[in-house]
């Protein structure tokens, strides 16, 4: 392919959330890396612009400093604070407000967890927290399950993006219900970003092939044998899945259809 053909083939609509155009459809977390250095190199290799962080107490005993900001260049990355670990709407709202007071932006990746074993969301509390935070001026990206009705309600409640899970957080099981993800994408107007459950590059590719706008992942990188190489693989997989979606796959058939002409065969 010539360079101009390659550029034409890669053409895509911009990825915009709440008026902000993002340069990558891959968003990454910053948790569970072996070292800050490994995290920084993996994020760099992923090409991500949006990077998630969590709000926690400062360790006042000073023997360890677990702060993540000294390792992230704020001119290069867009910080997306989460409300991970919150089990009710009031706590999630409190964490979101603490994060906003840090002064970076008004965005929040809203999580309200309903169950410790599965980390599945409490969708009623999620809707309540979404309404409160939207009314308070937040740009809410709501982590939810793969349920269409909840996704529609979140959109109605003013969520700037809806983030259905592929499978439970940290499970690496990949997309368990591509039909649900596709249906949510078809029905919502706001961006749909699959958050949680992607385990390896093929999962990311299949996820993007469903037509969603982006993916957020953390453990798939941090828990990989080589997080930096996996981050590179995920970057390629997200691009590949997106391009395959835009290209439109061939129809599935239950019978073989020859690729070579059936005429012109020798007698």
């Amino acid at each position: 392919m010539t360079e101009s053909t390659m550029l034409a083939a890669a053409t895509d609509t911009p990825f915009v959330i709440a008026g902000r155009t993002l340069r990558s459809r891959l968003m990454v977390g910053t948790g569970k890396y072996k070292s800050p250095n490994e995290m920084v190199r993996a994020i760099d290799a992923s090409g991500a612009e949006v990077v998630t962080v969590a709000v926690r107490r400062v360790n006042l005993n000073r023997d360890t400093d677990d702060g993540v900001l000294p390792h992230l260049d704020p001119s290069r990355y867009f910080l997306l604070s989460n409300t991970a670990g919150c089990y009710n709407a009031a706590d999630a709202v409190r964490y979101a407000r603490l994060a906003r007071a840090a002064g970076f932006n008004e965005w929040v990746k809203l999580e309200v967890i309903g169950d410790q074993d599965t980390l599945l969301p409490d969708t009623a509390a999620l809707l309540e927290a979404t309404r409160t935070l939207v009314a308070d001026g937040f740009v809410v990206l709501a982590y939810t399950n793969d349920d269409l009705i909840t996704a529609l309600r979140l959109e109605d409640a003013g969520a700037a993006a809806v983030m259905p899970l592929a499978s439970p957080i940290g499970s690496g099981l990949g997309v368990l219900n591509p039909y649900s993800i596709r249906t949510i994408k078809h029905r919502l107007s706001v961006p749909v970003i699959v958050d949680a459950g992607v385990g390896t590059a093929s999962d990311a590719c299949i996820t993007m092939e469903q037509g969603v706008d982006g993916i957020l992942m953390n453990t798939a990188l941090a828990a990989a044998g080589d997080p930096v190489r996996m981050a590179h693989a995920m970057r390629l997989a997200v691009d590949a899945g997106r391009q395959a979606h835009l290209a439109g796959r061939m129809p599935r058939r239950e019978v073989a259809v020859p690729s070579s002409p059936s005429v012109g065969m020798l007698e």
Binding site: T30, G31, V55, R57, V58, V68, A196
Partner: peptide, 10 residues
Amino acid sequence: VEIVHFVGGG
């Protein structure tokens, strides 16, 4: 008094 900051998270 709660003193918080950002740590790694997903």
